[in-house]
Amino acid sequence: MTPLVLALNLALSFASLAALALSLDRHHRDAFLARAPKARARALRLAGWAGIAVSFAAAVAFEGWNFGPVQWIGALTGAALLVVALLSYRPQWLRPAALAALPLALVALPFALKG
Score class of each variant (00 low, 15 high):
Thr2Pro: 06
Pro3Ala: 10
Pro3Glu: 09
Pro3Tyr: 03
Pro3Thr: 12
Leu4Glu: 13
Leu4Lys: 11
Leu4Cys: 04
Val5Met: 11
Leu8Gln: 09
Phe14Lys: 11
Phe14Thr: 00
Leu17Asp: 03
Ser23Thr: 12
Asp25Ala: 07
Ala31Glu: 10
Ala34Gln: 13
Ala34Ser: 08
Arg35Leu: 13
Lys38Glu: 05
Ala39Tyr: 02
Ala43Val: 07
Ala43Thr: 02
Ala43Asp: 14
Arg45Cys: 00
Arg45Ala: 03
Arg45Lys: 12
Ala47Tyr: 09
Trp49Gly: 09
Ala50Asn: 00
Val54Phe: 15
Ala57Asp: 06
Ala57Met: 14
Ala59His: 09
Phe62Tyr: 14
Trp65Lys: 01
Trp65His: 02
Asn66Gln: 14
Asn66Gly: 14
Phe67Ala: 12
Phe67Trp: 09
Phe67Val: 12
Val70Asn: 07
Val70Gln: 11
Gln71Tyr: 04
Ile73Gln: 09
Ile73Thr: 06
Ala75Arg: 03
Ala75Ser: 15
Ala75Asp: 04
Leu76His: 00
Gly78Glu: 00
Ala80Met: 00
Leu81His: 10
Val83Asp: 05
Val84Gly: 01
Ala85Arg: 12
Ala85Trp: 15
Leu86Asp: 04
Leu87Gln: 09
Pro91Arg: 04
Trp93Gly: 00
Pro96Ala: 08
Ala97Lys: 00
Ala97Leu: 14
Ala98Lys: 08
Ala101Leu: 13
Ala101Asn: 10
Leu104Thr: 14
Ala105Lys: 09
Ala105Val: 04
Val107Cys: 08
Pro110Val: 02
